[in-house]
Design a protein around this nucleic acid. Structure first.
Lengths: 248, 248
DNA sequence: CCACCTCCTTGATCATCGTCATGGAGGCAT
DNA sequence: ATGCCTCCATGACGATGATCAAGGAGGTGG
């Protein structure tokens, strides 16, 4: 019985019984995606729940020892890397079900800090236990390979964006990609709230804040979107997607 | 006995007995890096050697079905992705010991074509067999995770380069990175031959060919490098590395 | 040896976007 | 409320690098 099992783990956990993978609405997007119920329980057992991060708090800092990967449960985060004397660079935004920290495996330190953009909860997955479990569960192993592979693929897209696209195309790509990610997670693809600042967006896209502002203004004039502060309404998704491609 | 085993695989293989991982000078950089001799033989058994690719030939094409990853034995390759009506984008260069095709796992197709820049030999590693073997060999599995993680990390560096660095810094980064990669592979870090064209370099770095030419000229005037066609002599590696950082 | 093609270089001009500067708006604490 | 601070918008200007144009160099096949 799930309830008894949860109780056995103590009050705190039982109060949060919905934080088990079996009950998690994200399980169809997240790491345990391909697991049978039985296997999922094994996986569930290695997860450590964490108390929510408040806006601005770090999940971990650049350079700290790698020990776990994290799955986002709710909220959102940004990854930032600081290099030498240079200023920060935003290298990624993470939404629910996405996996954070995979780039730390290699050198056993996290190559960037990851900071909550709003109140955010994550599941901590100790990597040594994940690796060990992946030995017994081919489905889990496959999913882990796929997650990393997908991230590689997304990175290539980002490189293309940064090296070939105009400022307009970058912003159009950003919004249509966000829209798509919300859609996949069951949220409205047309109406959402940005958890990141204009500065974060600009930094991520390789643009000055001012450019972001200007282009958002222009998009609004063209009737593509309606933006008010961080509230976004996409009025013409098709046109936005068209803009995003580099067919001019 | 290894020799008999090799013979059992037929003449062609026995003639090329040096193409076994145990005898490969790259084994300390490549996937089997962490394996014991015994395990390495198991790994070796799933590898398929391929006849060399000539300059311009494709290892595989964008969109074709994913089946294997490849380790570069000698030579070099570029990855190019074509998107919509837009022109090609060079997303990576691969040198000996590097792993090609990891970004195809997720969607089971290769997201870009990979083309030889010169005569090139690769080891083909069927992914399903690799995955299966990685179940039994934790060291191999770990190395595979690390390889992917390293690629993620390198991608982040590339994003930083593309979004924050000036043209001069990009080229300085490119050359110091190449130098470093050659050094690790036991070649001279100061003197080497570029296997890629200026156009490839520019495309990869998000610059026009003309810009690449001009800046190479300037570097030469400044006494940083000596370039003649594709022959490169690095005269002042330190200064080049300094240029590459974005402290101006 | 010549013709052709690709690759590379160099110059001139132009556009995009970054920088600088300023002002407004909204959130948060006192 | 009031003040402060961060975030955002908008204008003016300038620089970096793209584009356009032309010519040279080197390799390859006839």
């Amino acid at each position: 019985m799930p309830v008894n099992a949860a109780n056995a783990l103590g009050k705190r956990r039982s109060l949060l019984h919905e934080t088990r993978c079996q009950n998690c609405s994200l399980s169809s997007l997240c790491l345990p995606l391909a697991l049978e119920l039985e296997d999922m329980e094994q996986f569930d057992a290695i997860i450590r729940r964490r108390s929510p991060l408040k806006k601005g708090e770090s999940l971990f800092r650049q350079g700290s020892a790698f020990s776990s990967v994290f799955a986002v449960r709710s909220g959102s985060l940004k990854q930032i890397t600081t290099e030498g004397s240079g200023e920060d660079q935003v290298t990624n935004f993470y939404l629910p079900s996405e996996l954070v920290g995979l780039d730390g495996i290699d050198e056993q330190t996290y190559p960037g800090s990851v900071v909550a953009l709003e109140t955010t909860t994550v599941c901590e997955i100790p990597f040594d236990r994940l690796d060990h479990l992946s030995e017994q569960l081919p489905e889990l192993r496959g999913q882990l390979y796929r997650s990393m592979s997908k991230e590689l693929r997304d990175d290539r897209k980002m490189m293309r964006l940064l090296s070939r696209k105009t400022a307009d195309q970058r912003l159009a790509s950003f919004f249509s990609s966000l829209s798509d990610r919300f859609r996949r997670r069951g949220y409205s693809p047309y109406s959402f709230r940005l958890s990141m600042s204009r500065a974060d967006i600009g930094n991520y896209l390789g643009l000055a804040v001012e450019t972001v502002s200007r282009i958002l203004g222009r998009f609004q004039q063209q009737g593509l979107v309606e933006v008010s502060g961080r509230e976004v309404n996409i009025l013409n998704l098709e046109a936005l997607v068209a803009q995003a491609q580099d067919e001019h």
